Simulated assay, not measured.
Amino acid sequence: MIAMTEPAIIKLAQAIAELVRPANDAAPPQINTARNVTIALAATKTGLSEKAIRRKIESGVWIEGREWTRAIDGGIYIDMEGYDRWVGKAVASKSAKIVSG
């Protein structure tokens, strides 16, 4: 058995850490999704439930061609840029009410 001093153990641990550290410490790559996404993915991205999204479509809160679109096969896709504009309007109207209130 080899006797090692504390500084020697620390140096050895640092050397091992250097060997096992990944070569690239950069953050993992981000995957950007399409502008128009399924209701399921939109629910994940927005925090709204799928049911809430469907209700916004059915009740006319979200307008076809603005917040959502229908594909050739009949599938419904949420326009994430349209969603962002919709949220921005809600935030802007709340801010206006606070300022004028």
Rank of each mutant, 00 (worst) to 15 (best):
L41M: 14
L41P: 00
A42R: 00
A42W: 01
A42P: 00
A42S: 00
T44A: 09
T44W: 00
T44E: 12
K45R: 12
K45C: 10
T46W: 02
T46S: 14
T46R: 02
T46Q: 07
G47V: 07
G47Y: 01
L48Y: 09
S49P: 01
S49E: 10
E50M: 09
E50R: 10
E50P: 09
K51T: 06
K51A: 05
K51S: 15
K51Y: 08
K51M: 06
A52T: 14
A52K: 06
R54H: 04
R54T: 03
R54C: 04
R54Y: 04
R55N: 10
I57Q: 02
E58T: 07
E58V: 08
E58N: 10
S59A: 14
S59E: 08
G60N: 14
G60Q: 08
V61D: 13
V61A: 09
W62A: 06
W62H: 03
W62D: 01
W62R: 01
I63P: 00
I63V: 13
I63Y: 02
I63T: 13
I63D: 03
E64C: 14
R66F: 11
R66G: 03
E67D: 04
E67N: 08
W68V: 01
W68Y: 14
W68H: 13
T69Y: 05
R70Q: 15
R70S: 13
A71E: 12
A71N: 10
I72D: 15
I72H: 12
I72A: 12
I72E: 14
D73C: 10
D73S: 13
D73G: 14
G74T: 09
G74D: 07
G74N: 08
G75P: 08
G75L: 12
I76Q: 02
I76G: 02
Y77F: 13
Y77W: 13
Y77P: 00
Y77V: 01
D79I: 01
D79M: 03
D79K: 02
D79N: 03
M80L: 11
M80W: 12
M80F: 02
M80K: 07
M80H: 05
M80V: 02
M80T: 11
E81K: 05
E81G: 00
G82R: 03
G82T: 04
G82Y: 04
Y83A: 06
Y83T: 00
Y83C: 01
D84T: 07
D84M: 09
D84S: 09
D84K: 10
R85I: 01
R85S: 11
W86I: 02
W86D: 06
W86F: 09
V87S: 06
V87K: 13
V87H: 10
G88F: 05
K89H: 15
K89Y: 14
K89P: 01
K89A: 13
K89T: 10
A90F: 05
V91S: 05
V91K: 04
A92W: 08
A92H: 12
S93I: 11
S93Y: 12
S93D: 14
S93G: 06
S93M: 15
K94P: 04
A96H: 11
A96K: 11
K97T: 06
K97D: 14
K97W: 09
K97N: 06
I98L: 15
